Amino acid sequence: MSSSTLSDRAAGAVMGALIGEALGVGPHWYYDLAELRRDHGSWITDYTTPKPGRYHDGLKAGALSQAGIILVMLLHSVVEQGGYDEADFCRRLDEDLFPQLDGTPKNGPGGYTSQSIREAWKKRVKEGASWRETGGQADTTEAIERALVLGARYALDPKRLAETVSANCLLTQSDEAIVAMSTAYCCVLGQLVAGERLDEQLSDKLMDLVKSRALPFHAVTSGHLQPPKSDAEPARAGHFSSPDALLTPSYIAEAAGDPDVQIEPAWKVSIVYGMPCAVYHQLPAAYYLATRFRDDFESAVLHAINGGGQNQARAMLTGALVGAQVGLAGIPQRFLDGLEDSAELLKLARELGRTAGQ
């Protein structure tokens, strides 16, 4: 168990994600690593300004792009409402974000609007759909990138965590497998905020929550994935058809700690698991880096960024997981100082941490 306080870990998770997001603004979406090195040097160490013509052209080093802006919108909502209020968050999207969009990718705050947000905008604004009908089929991490706020807020209430995260995900992404993997990531984050370790035992702890019906994942096996005990232990029929998304973290953690499994240098995790945006590329890389560098926030996020591709999401997800393990006190001060609007964001993150500990 972690020796830091729950409040500090919750705030660390949120600030870790925001730092990772801002680190990705300059070098985002370089799939040619030679081009990345040419534009940003052999090793990116800090916030950078996007080159002319790149995705977030016009933003300054340390600024947030749209993923970070939406995360902060949800953070404001949760802090001001004292918890997750879906109507309030949707109102903010309707009033504060959607009027700035036009349905095209390179438009809107932050310089780029992702597929899931564009699809939700189209259904909501152009077609007049209700928020129960706005989810699309994007297989990306965009829902996780904002819902991690809920993972930190409800760390001590796994059932509420899973309910709020899955509901929030469905606003923009409706594929059941993507919702399950998004919810699982936030369950992992919640466990880390609660003080658990990202290790080979974490998935067993998550499966115990499934068996107690605290998490809505279907399962038929008994302990340690042994055959079911037909009479003594009935299947848990959850909303999500499989618990496999809860099992992934510990398999990745085991690989990260196995001396016979080596990824050197660690930034090449992006090549091993893939550079693209989809959840199934991003989550294994984030789990790997967050296990290997569980006590070293700087190394974790910099290896995430220097791997290219969808490095912004990789750094956000890694930053949240490691921020939850080291706590706010374990994040290097220079990353906090260089983040735009850092004082306001720290205030919000600390308030979220305070309520998470209640």
Rank of each mutant, 00 (worst) to 15 (best):
G151H: 06
G111D: 08
D32C: 10
I44C: 02
D32N: 15
G83Y: 01
G151L: 05
K123G: 07
D157H: 13
V149Q: 07
L75E: 01
Q100T: 13
D139G: 04
E133Q: 14
A34K: 11
P50A: 01
L74T: 05
P50V: 05
T134K: 09
T164P: 00
G135L: 10
Q81R: 15
F98R: 03
S77W: 02
T134R: 10
N107G: 13
G68F: 00
S130F: 05
Q137N: 15
G103Y: 04
Q66R: 05
L101K: 05
A143E: 13
L33N: 08
G135Q: 06
L36F: 04
Y154H: 09
K106G: 03
G83N: 03
K159E: 15
K123R: 14
T45G: 15
H40V: 01
G128M: 11
G62R: 09
E145R: 01
L36E: 00
I69S: 02
D96I: 02
W121R: 00
A162K: 00
V78S: 13
L101G: 11
G58V: 13
Y31K: 07
E80N: 12
L59N: 06
I69Y: 10
V149D: 02
G111C: 05
M73H: 15
G135N: 10
S42E: 15
N107Y: 10
L101N: 00
K159M: 14
R118K: 07
T140H: 03
L74E: 06
R38F: 12
V149K: 07
G110W: 04
R146H: 11
R92G: 10
A63Q: 14
V149T: 03
L156T: 12
K159I: 11
A152L: 04
A155S: 11
K126R: 14
Q115T: 04
V79S: 02
A147F: 02
